[in-house]
Simulated assay, not measured.
Amino acid sequence: MALGVYRSKIEADNLEETLPTKKTLKTIDAAAKARAADYAAQQKQQEMRKVRNSRDNRIALIASAGAVVLALVLQLGYFGFGPGSVTPNPTASSSANSALVPSPALAEGRTWSGSIEINGKPLTVEIDGANAPQAAANFLSLANSGFYSGNTCHRLVTEGIYVLQCGDPNGDGTGDPGYKWGPIENAPADDSYKTGVLAMARQSGDGSTMGSQFFIVYEDSVIPSDAAGGYTVFGKITGDLSAIDDVIAGGVEGGGTDGKPAVEAKISAISLK
């Protein structure tokens, strides 16, 4: 055999020894595919984690914002005694009131004094006919007609703000004297309602939805204004609040912070002069 041919055979034999077999190639290919699939799976898991984290962050932000909005809505709606949504009407005036609404002239622009009896115990009061003539005239007219006698105070709030709400003939926050009126009068500019204040309840966002419901502030409270403004202050308790001490101490029925008083608070009579 010629040297060149022999040398070429040796090189070919050596090359065959260094080249992988078909079985080895298949094994290598399978391993490579497995590694590629594993890498792709890891990449997909990472992408899914990123998506989940992003989604969770959005949900957390939405939940946090929702909690803030809910808290604000609840606070602004403490005195919204009517059902359903209300269109704000901050420019309402007494000229829009029906003929059923007592004339502001009945308040005579002066201070009225007397008492509100709750559970047979008197709260001495003053009604401000000078600064809140429409509210004072309405309260005087309803009181003198006996409208309030026998009504219960249906709502007690014991957290955030501190009020006892009364004057609903239905006893559940839905009643009125058969009419509604406005506008808002004598609301504090700083939204601060001092202990003993008497103020009118109304639907949130509407200054022309006052009727017969009012609230007694039994501890200093900041009650935020809404789109319509604040709440009409028409008088105050001039003595102590001992007549409702047991009602306040009893808290809310069921242990909540806003609802029906656990101890009944019934208006026995109202006398003013």
Rank of each mutant, 00 (worst) to 15 (best):
3 L>C: 08
4 G>H: 10
4 G>M: 09
5 V>W: 09
6 Y>H: 09
8 S>D: 14
12 A>E: 12
15 L>E: 13
17 E>R: 13
18 T>C: 12
20 P>V: 10
27 T>Q: 10
31 A>H: 10
32 A>N: 15
35 R>C: 11
37 A>Y: 10
42 Q>M: 13
48 M>S: 15
50 K>A: 15
52 R>I: 14
53 N>E: 08
54 S>P: 03
54 S>H: 12
63 A>K: 14
63 A>P: 04
67 A>I: 06
68 V>A: 09
69 V>W: 07
77 G>Q: 05
79 F>D: 00
83 P>F: 06
84 G>K: 07
84 G>W: 08
86 V>Y: 05
88 P>T: 09
92 A>W: 04
96 A>F: 08
101 V>R: 01
104 P>E: 07
106 L>D: 06
108 E>K: 09
109 G>M: 10
114 G>L: 04
123 L>I: 04
123 L>R: 01
126 E>C: 04
132 A>Y: 00
132 A>G: 03
132 A>N: 02
133 P>L: 04
134 Q>W: 03
136 A>V: 03
143 A>F: 00
146 G>D: 11
149 S>T: 13
149 S>K: 14
152 T>C: 04
165 Q>G: 03
176 D>P: 03
188 P>I: 04
188 P>N: 07
191 D>A: 11
197 V>I: 09
203 Q>C: 12
204 S>E: 09
205 G>W: 05
208 S>I: 02
211 G>C: 07
215 F>V: 01
217 V>T: 05
218 Y>Q: 01
219 E>W: 01
221 S>T: 06
223 I>A: 02
223 I>V: 15
230 G>T: 05
232 T>N: 06
234 F>A: 02
253 E>R: 06
257 T>R: 11
259 G>C: 11
270 I>P: 01
